[in-house]
Simulated scan of single mutants.
Amino acid sequence: MNIQTIGVIGAGQMGAGIAQAVATGGYRVILYDIKEEYCENAKEKIYASLKKRAEAGKITTDLVENTIEKINTTEDLKQLGICDMVIEAVPEVLELKQSIFKELGTICRPDAILCTNTSTISVSQVMSECTMKERCAGMHFFFPAPVMKLVEVIRSNDTTDATVSVIKQVASYIGKTAIECKFDTPGFIVNRCLFAFLQEALHCYEDGIATIEDIDTAMKQGLNHPMGPFEMMDMSGLDIYPHACESLRELPVTTWECCDSVKKLIEEGRLGRKSGHGWYDYK
């Protein structure tokens, strides 16, 4: 499928960032929000972001102007009917997302690809009232979207291989690395791993084991992380944390029992770099 025009729903922090990333990658963008002023504010922030990158020598001034020219805005959702692909990036409220995809199912062409940027909500639930479920999937960008290279592609219960293939192609075209979450699990890949890490950091703090500063320092200097867990939570916004935890509650609690897959590798003599083989081969 030849994707040329991509709709982005939601002109907030993530939506604006996705619009910038997509337009910079060469696609035409229609940015939608319920008020035109939200879209115009987003476009001004995109221009400021691009201009700052140009001043730093990271992109050309021509690319700044070309990117802005590719972004059109609207407060009429029906205008997204011409899009080859739509990416939703509204607040993490299930009912809101469901209503959007229900309407998109009547607005968009039957061959359009519909994506949600949800970070924790079940993709299958988000798409439950859409008539085009086989062409729906999760396309989860990371903050800040123009900079972060990773995109998670999440299958719903109905997503086809062809849909996943198109989304991966688009991600590659805009300079992102796409990874596939093979079924719709809470937290997908990154947040399922991340929030287990964040929760343990919080327990260390709340149990009085260490200060937030020392925990952040431990992770940065001990594990070479670019920022600590508390710095990361502040950057993402603490208000999203309870919603993410609620979505992850149905997962089984991690135990300290050694996983069978690790035991199997040890039995096979695959001990990691020291033996030349572990999860990966090093010879």
Rank of each mutant, 00 (worst) to 15 (best):
G269S: 10
I121W: 02
N41A: 15
I3T: 12
I113Y: 07
N224R: 04
F141M: 10
G105L: 09
G81P: 02
V262W: 13
S275Y: 08
I174V: 13
V64F: 03
A201E: 04
G15K: 07
P242R: 12
M127S: 06
A54N: 07
P110Q: 14
M235H: 04
Y241C: 01
I167K: 02
G81L: 11
R53Y: 13
D161M: 03
I9L: 06
E88T: 01
G15P: 02
K176N: 02
T159L: 00
C259F: 05
P226G: 15
T211W: 03
E246I: 05
S156C: 06
R249Q: 10
T120R: 02
I167E: 00
T60E: 13
M14D: 10
T67L: 01
N224A: 06
I212M: 11
Y173F: 03
S49Y: 15
Y38Q: 13
A196I: 06
A162Q: 06
R155T: 05
I179N: 04
P252V: 07
T131S: 15
R273F: 07
E152F: 07
E267C: 01
I107L: 05
M148K: 01
H203F: 12
V86W: 02
A19K: 10
I46W: 00
E268L: 13
E246V: 05
A54S: 14
P91I: 10
D281Y: 10
I59H: 04
N157Y: 02
D281F: 14
L94D: 13
R135L: 09
H225D: 02
M139K: 00
A21I: 07
L238S: 12
G105N: 11
S119V: 05
S275E: 11
I121A: 09
E231P: 00
Y27K: 04
M232T: 15
N2T: 13
A244M: 06
T73P: 00
K45Q: 14
P144I: 12
G222Q: 08
A89H: 06
V22S: 05
I59N: 05
I87C: 09
L77C: 09
P226F: 12
G208Q: 04
N191D: 07
R249P: 00
K274G: 07
Q4C: 05
I240W: 03
S128G: 12
S172I: 01
K52G: 05
D76M: 14
F142H: 11
A56N: 14
A54K: 05
G17D: 08
R192K: 10
L63R: 10
S128H: 05
E257C: 03
M233P: 00
N224P: 00
I189A: 09
I215E: 02
M232Q: 11
A16E: 11
D260F: 07
Y173S: 12
D214N: 14
S124I: 06
L31V: 13
I107W: 01
I46S: 07
A11C: 08
E200S: 03
E36W: 04
N117G: 05
A89T: 08
G26E: 11
D161C: 01
C245S: 01
E88S: 02
K45D: 11
Y282F: 15
F230T: 10
R28Y: 06
T118C: 10
L238N: 06
